[in-house]
Simulated scan of single mutants.
Amino acid sequence: MIDNPNQKIYSAPNIVGYYAQLSQLQPAEQTIINLLQHQLSTMTMLDIGVGGGRTTKHFFPIVGQYIGIDYCPQMITACKKRFSAFSESISLEVGDARKLSQFNDNFFDFILFSFNGIDYISHGDRLKVFQEINRVGKSGGYFFFSTHNLQGIEKEFNWQKNLSFNPITTYVNLVMFALFRWFNPSLTSEKLTNSPYLIIRDESHNFRLQTYYIRPLEQIKQLQEYFSEIKIYSWKNGLDITDEIELLSQSDMWIYYLCMIR
């Protein structure tokens, strides 16, 4: 199963090299490590969209069994090279979150899909991912992922909010705004306001990626068929968001979701 436009970009040598040098966790990822610290040592973990191994560095030493997959063979090659000294204790393989047929039902205690990897497939395929994760994850296990927040892009769509007292900042912001409008000619304020989710070409990798953006309440609806006890965390500070009013006004560009598998 191949999403040609996005997968081709992720397979490019310069993009693979970029992800192979990343090493820092996001605040919400550190929050989850802290939250599950007493359970991780006994957990079998699936790290989806592992890329160049950013999350591998942090998770494989502390979980019971670690398996990392990516749908780009070039990423897996880079990741294996990065962790060649630990090849006997890390399992890294090419795999697609939309069809995890190489794994048995009820196999994983903890499944991670980080860096918004789920946002680079179609809407229908996104729902297949949730179904597959429900299948391979153990009941009572955890699924943790991040996704782009449609509410966050609304701020970027208003050119006046790109103005700054610093003329250089204003110039850069307005250039990016102009490029954003150029690459999304059909996107209107009305469409942005009324849509539960949209496919948008944002600035990621020079506007080459087609990225899925979704409103938090819509994301919760998608998850409820397969998951329970859905918790939401801020990208910027890693704190949980428990108030619906706060959630509706949340403008972080990314949001993290922690779900319990049914």
Rank of each mutant, 00 (worst) to 15 (best):
E93V: 08
P5F: 14
M1D: 06
T188Y: 02
H205G: 00
K99G: 05
Q160Y: 11
S195G: 00
Q219E: 14
N149L: 06
Y233R: 10
S23K: 12
I111W: 07
I90P: 08
D96M: 09
Q37V: 00
K8Q: 12
W182S: 11
T211A: 00
I230R: 12
I220H: 06
G117A: 02
W182H: 15
K128G: 07
I220A: 05
T211H: 01
D70H: 09
W254D: 15
V63A: 08
M43V: 02
K191A: 03
W159S: 08
L217G: 00
Q151K: 06
M43S: 10
F157C: 07
D109T: 10
M260D: 10
P27S: 08
F144N: 08
F110K: 02
L40T: 00
D47H: 01
E229Q: 14
N14C: 05
I168T: 14
R262M: 05
Q65M: 10
Q74P: 02
K138R: 07
E229S: 13
F227T: 08
E154M: 15
W235A: 12
G124W: 03
K138I: 04
S139A: 05
Q7P: 07
D105S: 13
D252A: 10
L150T: 02
A178R: 00
T55K: 08
T77N: 06
F60C: 03
M75Y: 07
F183T: 15
T44L: 05
F130C: 00
F108D: 04
L217Y: 04
F113P: 07
F103N: 03
D96K: 08
N206I: 07
L25A: 03
S41T: 04
C259M: 14
L163I: 15
N149S: 06
Y257K: 09
Q102P: 01
E156T: 02
P13G: 05
Q24P: 03
H148R: 13
K236I: 13
G238M: 10
Q210F: 08
M260C: 13
F108Y: 08
M75W: 10
Y66D: 09
V50Q: 10
Q131D: 12
F177V: 04
Y120P: 05
Q74I: 02
K80N: 03
L258W: 13
L217Q: 11
S228Q: 14
D3W: 10
G117Q: 00
N104W: 02
W254A: 14
N162Y: 03
R135S: 01
K236L: 13
N184H: 09
S249H: 15
H58I: 11
W159E: 09
F143H: 12
T56Y: 01
D105I: 03
Y18N: 07
R126A: 00
T193I: 05
Y256V: 11
C72D: 11
R126H: 09
R98L: 01
E246D: 14
D202I: 03
N106L: 00
R54F: 06
E156M: 05
F157D: 06
G52V: 02
S139C: 01
K8T: 15
L100S: 00
I232F: 13
F130A: 04
I220N: 05
A97Y: 04
L36C: 00
I121F: 00
M260V: 15
K231E: 15
N184V: 11
D119T: 12
Y71R: 15
W159K: 08
H58S: 15
T211V: 04
F144D: 07
I261M: 14
F83I: 06
I9P: 03
